[in-house]
């Protein structure tokens, strides 16, 4: 039986569909955040949801991230499954006490009596000309805290399956979406599916070098892999999909297979997600490595507003290509 042509959705549509399906499935799921109702967020990700589910379940809040995140923590503890929308990932700084000291710890400190089944959706990614306070990728902050799960989807398919899994999770999950990816299209089956948190995905198989890439960097890695292919280097692209829980097994096995690894993530390189992943790989695949594990992330500077400067602060297909060639001794 030939399959029908796969249905394509944008990243934003996939997110919206995941939310709508979960809200239909479970009346406890609700959305709160700035401009989430009629405006559907500045990125138009949530358009149409308030019309279907009403203002009780798609709740516009005042501009007070700390306030409505705290509201969500309490609502989650007392039976709802809120999905909080933090418009720009830069604003998570305002929610830190609610997330780090309350949401992440309540289950542990109450001996399992209370749960906080909430999701925080927010954004990451530079090169949108939004300047230093609206362009950061701060997901490493949450990865550092026990009790929080951190999801970094890179395709519409992954975004939908992971968001549904995140909403059904009994623990607080922070879900980072790349602002530049919302219009990217990809196949998303109409039928029901979820993707378990903690399962990496090999986006492209290869044999000479592994490019571990998260979120926005997956497309960069795939582009670099195409360039490398033309240079006779076979690159494998592995997407962890969740920074925590981390699928260490898949990362280490890929490193063992190729012996060379570049880890890339759009967060700041220093003390970032790439450091943790590189360390996991160095420890797990040490005797199979033929070169040091290289990391690539955002430069240690405020993201510049100047477009030419902004573009060089984060890895690009070209810089990854050159780094990979050098690592393979072919520069």
């Amino acid at each position: 039986m030939p399959d029908a042509a796969p249905r394509e959705l944008t990243f934003a549509q996939a997110i919206r569909e995941a939310l709508a399906e979960e809200m239909r499935r479970d009346s406890r799921v609700c959305i709160m955040g700035e401009d989430v109702a009629e405006a559907g967020t500045p990125f138009k990700v949530l358009s149409g949801l308030v019309e279907e589910f009403g203002k009780e379940r798609v709740l516009d809040t005042p501009i007070s991230e700390a306030g409505f995140t705290g509201l969500a923590v309490g609502a989650a503890m007392t039976g709802l499954r809120p999905v909080v929308d933090i418009m720009f990932g830069d604003f998570i700084t305002l929610t830190m006490d609610q997330m780090v000291n309350q949401a992440a710890k309540v289950h542990y400190m109450s001996g399992g009596t209370w749960k906080v089944p909430m999701v925080m959706r927010t954004t990451l990614g530079a090169t949108r000309r939004s300047a230093a306070q609206h362009s950061q990728s701060l997901h490493a902050w949450f990865c550092h805290v026990p009790g929080l799960k951190v999801v970094l989807p890179s395709t519409p398919y992954d975004a939908k399956g992971l968001l549904k899994a995140a909403i059904r999770d009994e623990n607080p999950v922070v879900f980072f979406e790349d602002k530049m990816m919302y219009k990217q299209k990809g196949p998303v089956p109409a039928e029901e599916y979820t993707i378990p948190l903690g399962l990496a995905d090999v986006k492209r198989a290869g044999s000479d070098i592994t490019l571990v890439a998260t979120s926005s960097m997956v497309q960069v890695a795939l582009g670099a892999a195409d360039l490398l292919d033309q240079a006779g280097i076979s690159a494998e692209v592995v997407d962890p999909r969740t920074a925590w829980p981390l699928d260490e097994h898949t990362l280490i096995e890929s490193a063992k297979k190729t012996s060379r690894v570049i880890v890339m993530d759009e967060g700041y390189e220093r003390y970032g997600v790439t450091a943790e992943i590189a360390s996991v790989i160095a420890a797990g695949a040490f005797y199979d490595l033929d070169a040091p594990v290289k990391r690539m992330g955002a430069m240690h500077v405020p993201i510049p507003f100047s477009p030419p400067l902004e573009d060089v602060t984060v890895p690009t297909e070209q810089t990854v290509f050159e780094a990979a060639r050098a690592l393979c001794g072919r520069s």
Binding site: S259, F286, Y287, D288, L289, D290, A291
Partner: peptide, 13 residues
């Protein structure tokens, strides 16, 4: 103290 050649962990194994 003969200078030891640098060698990757995989090559050493």
């Amino acid at each position: 103290a003969a200078a030891e050649a640098k060698i990757s962990p995989k090559a050493r194994r």
